[in-house]
Design a protein around this nucleic acid. Sequence first.
DNA 1: CTTGTCCTGTAAAACGCTTTGGGGTATACT
DNA 2: AGTATACCCCAAAGCGTTTTACAGGACAAG
Lengths: 335, 335
Amino acid sequence: MVSMKDISLKCGVSVATVSKAINGHSDIGKHTAQHIRNVAKEMGYLPNAAARALKTNRTYNLGVLFMDKTQSGLTHEYFSAVLDSFKVEAERRGYDITFISNNLGQYTMSYLEHCRSRACDGVVIACVNFNDPAVVELVRSEIPVVTIDHVFNEKTAILSNNVQAVKDIVTYIYQQGHRKIAFIHGEDTSVTQKRVAGFYRTCQELGINVPEAYVRSALYHDPASSAEATRALLSLSERPTCIMYPDDFSFIGGRNVIEEMGLCIPEDISVAGFDGIYLSQVLQPVLTTVRQDTVSLGKEAATHLITSIEQPQIAVIEQVMVAGHLLPGKSVMKI
Amino acid sequence: MVSMKDISLKCGVSVATVSKAINGHSDIGKHTAQHIRNVAKEMGYLPNAAARALKTNRTYNLGVLFMDKTQSGLTHEYFSAVLDSFKVEAERRGYDITFISNNLGQYTMSYLEHCRSRACDGVVIACVNFNDPAVVELVRSEIPVVTIDHVFNEKTAILSNNVQAVKDIVTYIYQQGHRKIAFIHGEDTSVTQKRVAGFYRTCQELGINVPEAYVRSALYHDPASSAEATRALLSLSERPTCIMYPDDFSFIGGRNVIEEMGLCIPEDISVAGFDGIYLSQVLQPVLTTVRQDTVSLGKEAATHLITSIEQPQIAVIEQVMVAGHLLPGKSVMKI
DNA sequence: CTTGTCCTGTAAAACGCTTTGGGGTATACT
DNA sequence: AGTATACCCCAAAGCGTTTTACAGGACAAG
């Protein structure tokens, strides 16, 4: 590996000069600086990230804490999409990303310790159990953090506007003429709470009565539990005319039950999903759902994190709302 | 951040001694070593990865090159699953993982340059265009590399046994009594070639005649193209009794067409997928498919990569086959 | 001619760690 | 007692950068 020393030798200048030339400091003559840069490129010079990090305490490395109960936030399409967008923006700004975990080799280290040992410049947290003490420790630390879909008072949060999204889709369903709308929600998280609240409030605003039996609990990303909830809803004496699912994927479970009972979507029963994943748009009929803007979520997260790293003075703790986007589909019938 | 120097001061020994004690070198007295380790833990010491890397030229960082045409290998369930398993094994062995891309900030650097600048100890490559000169450059470099689902002569490859997998599922379909089996394959890649070859060979071994019209081309992960292929197959004068799809997800497109034509799976037409993703197992009827063992693929990749890093003398360039696993499902009818 | 100022460039220290090459001290062996 | 042998431990160099403090020269102003 060619180092600054090699360049300095070839150019007949000191390493200090090389460093400054490469980093564009102003106290090196234009001519010399350009020459040094040319030679550097020619020799295939690459900055040694470790050395730079050691000296400056900046690694240009962002930590990513992504994990769900099954230990794999990665296989969840919504989160992979957010992560992917985060990655793109981070790289555009010159940052690499590294996964944070709590066990490296024989060591068992906390998330915070892992970040510190790798000297991450900042961390994005999503898709984890936000009550985990190890997560809380990280959030309370001195390391810049942004969270996705969860608010901690001390750090910036990027939030999908779940309340608005639910409102939009419920309103749409209402406009299609539905008055008996059932809502299957996921397990208890802050996101779920927002959605449930949004559902009740919107119904109230629209003057829809919501029988207790119309609101049921299931699990995210788990068609089986949604299937069960669907079965319960369809066996009510007063059936809903439209069922909303925790997410597009879970809907598959509901769909199975509906077909099993010989009912047709949307003629006999209307349905709606949440997330707007690829799958939802290739189903027949196309699922009515609301797309979470994963691209913006990831990008906003990266932007805010990097700002709070590079310009701590202007960085503000805030909650950034990212709007969803209704995808009408064909699964809610006009009645 | 507490450093070895702080510990050395507190313990009244030299930093050299601290380093050796912490790294378990044998030439430090048992008693002293233990004491130093205790103090280190007590003071919350964490090794500085950058300093260590600078000195030893080992970062305990593995590069991951994952990307498809849409710039996001991440949102592809098969690859995310492989990556996730890779990550788990790498972390267990004490390695972090970092994504490799070709643009960091204003710099545009090749993959190889990126790896070198970050001093990755090794790289795993999957889900990319293996003809890309930048990828080839990386593969030909001095950096340890393993590839997934593609063979380069100079590096170890981890391969899902596509030939065997196709053979297994075709044989199963045959045993269910089918003789008119159609095969929709994905775009032309080495994986596709293996599968197509496996299909033809198995059919030949079983004595099945395969009309040219029964083998059709579509795209991976693209229900629309599979839908089209399905339409073509179903409009043949001599319809196949079973259709095999490029992957489980694409099958959704075929399924739509089949339902649209008022046909039932599997009574009127049998179908089979490939991959064994979660979705395939929650569809009704459960899809007959072959699960690619993503966990083993990721784990093997990590294991081989780390071995070739840590024990270059015993590491051998080889092709590791990972067997698939038939999931019979209910979508192929006994006839 | 002196002083001050700008402009370029340099020397050297420091970041935190690992490792080489001894150097003491105690124990064992002649 | 003298010498060899372990056994512990240390000093210092060096990994590739960045940065501070400063030096030399040119030039303008006084």
